[in-house]
Design a protein around this nucleic acid. Structure first.
Length: 695
DNA sequence: GCGATCAGAT
DNA sequence: CACATCTGATCGC
């Protein structure tokens, strides 16, 4: 690997250090990859205006530079074959904003490239490009726990990780000082316990989640909602209108105990015991409020016990939260994929390009001299495999895996070999299935969205075992074409009922808490123990965690009734990657954690050979493949929840097929229903028709 | 008036 | 700590 980024056009940032005085890590990726310079990723200005195709890895502003600029708009108008490629969820989120709506007809969700889950925010993906210039991975922003790469089917071929020429890597925390960050599950668990300790005191105890305006906190909201049967109050939720699994956990009704609303003067409000949405009381009884601010915290290598919740004031807490991989996670990921080259996308503040490269280089193949050209790369790990595929896999893949292939891998694709096109034809294509585009697919698209959302963050394991038909409807109601109806019907599923959400919570039920032996109603048999960390500045909350989970574990004394600073929280020091504590042994099934990579969305886009005209899409999991003749891959499309839901391991949003014949609720109708529900009015389900009738 | 850029705040 | 985003000031078109 060289010391500088080869062939990165737009040149700007060479190997320079960050200018002083900046407040954030600085992006150094200019949008283009040396290997495939005529496509642009996450940058849409300057040199990128000439790109023949655009990729957006996720919907964060710092990855959307130029995306709504007049220059690009003009370019689009002139070059009708130029498209933007992104995940379905990102498409949905993007098009919600009027400023970006002009992309509506120019977005492709699937093509040519393998989309791998990035675990950064809903819809975030990594792009794996395969072609005659080699296999290149662009990670976008990502957070993957140790070992998760090893469980991504699509990162592997023949049972080994693919031979990756270059990786363009999210190096936001690529600095030893960010060595370790508690896992998503550990952080979530901390927040859950803190919230529990507060809101169970009375209906007038409310929490405010002081979240930034960015996608990525949704799994926090959904998990809290599910845990406590309380929707989270937010300012806006229309961007989630087609993602029921998120939508159902949010509300614009302020009378909930969990708030994530925002206001420019929110902090000031909070001082006066006023929530950002303005309320200070309920039933004329003043509220008792705490704030929890998700913040990235990290911990030195030697820290044995780390607190995921830190009390920073009388009623203020910080909760550990990170969208990006830690230093050790980055190194684990990189050493697993072991590319020839690694290029940072970001220079962390206070460091330099050269320093980052020095860290990355030893993990790349080019520095490992003793090694044969094709060293045995990492082997694909199966967290759990599911047999049950009666159909045989394509021969050339089949026997290459040690274990039986999980369900989603069965995909009949002719022609593996066309995979290495001579020329990338990024031409516009008609979709395999018209349902991909436009309005008519409201519900179908919603399915794939929600799946991806869950897939990004949530483990659906419990639903797999308990649903009566394994072939469908796990926790998140994936595959159900009409989610609202679904929830009404399956009231006993772990998906909370609408009624629970919308009714006034004058008391906290125990629902959902049964797995917490230590959790008691209102009072105070909790046994928290205040733990003050050595830094002494603030009060830390910690616990001796059992080896099993991140739970309250200590018997405590007083304090339970005074402030929630007595909650015991910490994270497990040693987590060997994959499973974090939460879901182990089904101990705490209610909380859904970020899942292993293999459970996340994975999707394939196929590169088109120059001999054919259209880019072909392969909406499924498996090796990237070009479908000859640009024909569609019908099976997956018609097997809704089957492949994804039978095995949560492999749930895949992109792969989630739509259900073409499903009757789609009209958006307006849904909106109407939601409003009714939010207003506390009841709705009756007409089971015969599966439609809702308001009363 | 809009966009790009920067400083600063949250 | 250094998540991403918004606001306001300034400048140029």
């Amino acid at each position: 690997m060289g010391q500088s980024i080869p062939g990165i056009p737009g040149g700007g940032l060479g190997g320079e250090a960050n200018p002083p005085g900046l407040t954030g890590a600085m992006s150094c990726f200019q949008g283009q990859m040396a290997e495939y310079p005529n496509i642009s990723i996450d940058r849409f200005d300057r040199e990128n205006l000439k790109a023949r195709a655009y990729f957006l890895s996720h919907c964060h502003k710092d990855h959307m530079k130029g995306l709504r600029a007049p220059a690009l708009k003009r370019r689009l108008e002139c070059s009708l074959k130029v498209y933007l490629y992104c995940s379905p969820v990102t498409k949905e989120l993007l098009l919600t904003s009027p400023k970006y709506r002009f992309w509506e007809t120019r977005i492709k969700e699937e093509i040519v490239v393998t989309l791998l889950p990035a675990g950064h925010c809903p819809g975030s993906v990594m792009f794996l490009f395969q072609g005659d210039q080699g296999t290149v991975l662009y990670t976008g922003d990502f957070r993957l726990a140790k070992g998760e790469a090893a469980r991504m089917e699509l990162l592997h071929y023949g049972g080994r990780v693919k031979d990756i020429q270059s990786v363009y890597l999210d190096t936001t925390f690529c600095d030893p000082k960010f060595h370790q960050i508690p896992s998503r599950g550990e952080c979530l668990s901390g927040v859950v316990e803190l919230v529990r300790s507060w809101i169970t005191r009375s209906p007038y105890h409310v929490v405010w989640l002081n979240c930034k305006a960015a996608y990525g906190y949704e799994y926090l909201f959904t998990n809290l909602s599910e845990e406590f049967g309380l929707q989270v109050h937010v300012d806006k939720l229309d961007m989630f209108r087609n993602m029921p699994d998120i939508l159902h956990h949010l509300t614009t009704d302020r009378s909930t105990q969990i708030h994530a609303c925002r206001h420019p003067k929110a902090e000031e409000y909070f001082q006066w015991n006023r929530l950002p949405c303005g309320i200070t009381s309920r039933n004329r009884i003043p509220l008792h409020t705490i704030s929890i601010k998700p913040s990235t915290m990290w911990f030195g290598e030697r820290t044995r016990k780390t607190n995921v919740i830190v009390r920073t004031g009388e009623s203020s807490y910080r909760a550990c939260f990170s969208f990006h991989s830690s230093y050790s996670e980055i190194k684990d990921f990189l050493s697993y994929i072991c590319p020839v080259n690694a290029y940072p996308n970001v220079i962390p503040l206070g460091t330099t390009m050269d320093k980052v490269i020095e860290i990355l280089k030893p993990l790349c193949r080019s520095s490992q001299s003793t090694e044969p050209k094709y060293k045995p790369l990492g082997k694909l790990k199966r967290a759990r495999t599911i047999h049950l595929d009666s159909e045989e896999e394509e021969e050339d893949e089949h026997d290459l895996f040690d274990d039986p292939l999980p369900v989603p891998l069965r995909r009949k694709v002719p022609n593996q070999r066309t995979l290495h096109p001579k020329v990338f034809q990024m031409t516009a294509v008609s979709q395999n299935q018209p349902e991909k585009l436009g309005q008519s697919t409201g519900c179908n698209r919603a399915e794939s969205m929600q799946t991806s959302l869950w897939a990004n963050f949530i483990d659906c394991e419990e639903s797999n075992s308990e649903s009566e038909e394994e072939s469908q409807i796990p926790a998140s109601s994936q595959g159900d074409p009409c989610p609202v109806t679904h929830h009404q019907q399956k009231v006993d599923a772990e998906v909370p009922q609408w009624e629970v959400f919308f009714k006034r919570n004058d008391e906290i039920t125990d629902d959902g808490l049964e797995n917490f032996p230590s959790s008691t109603e209102g009072g105070g048999s909790q046994s928290p123990k205040l733990f003050t960390d050595s830094d002494g500045e603030s009060t830390h909350i910690s616990s001796q965690n059992s080896s099993q989970s991140t739970h309250i574990s200590e018997q405590g004394s007083q304090g339970w009734d005074s402030q929630p600073d007595t909650v015991l929280l910490s994270f497990q020091e040693r987590n060997s990657g994959d499973m974090t504590s939460l879901n182990k042994g089904g101990y705490k099934p209610r909380i859904k954690e970020n899942l292993p990579a293999s459970q996340m969305e994975q999707s394939v886009l196929c590169l088109k050979d120059s001999s054919s005209e259209d880019v072909t899409t392969v909406p499924s999991v498996g090796e990237p493949t070009t479908v000859s003749g640009g024909k569609h891959i019908p099976q997956e499309r018609r097997l809704p929840a089957l492949s994804t839901n039978a095995d949560s391991q492999s749930s895949s949003d992109f792969e989630i097929p739509s259900t073409p014949e499903a009757e789609l609720p009209k958006r307006e109708h849904l909106q109407y229903l939601y409003e009714k529900l939010a207003a506390g009015e009841s709705i009756v389900l007409d089971k015969r028709k599966g439609s809702l009738i308001d009363t």
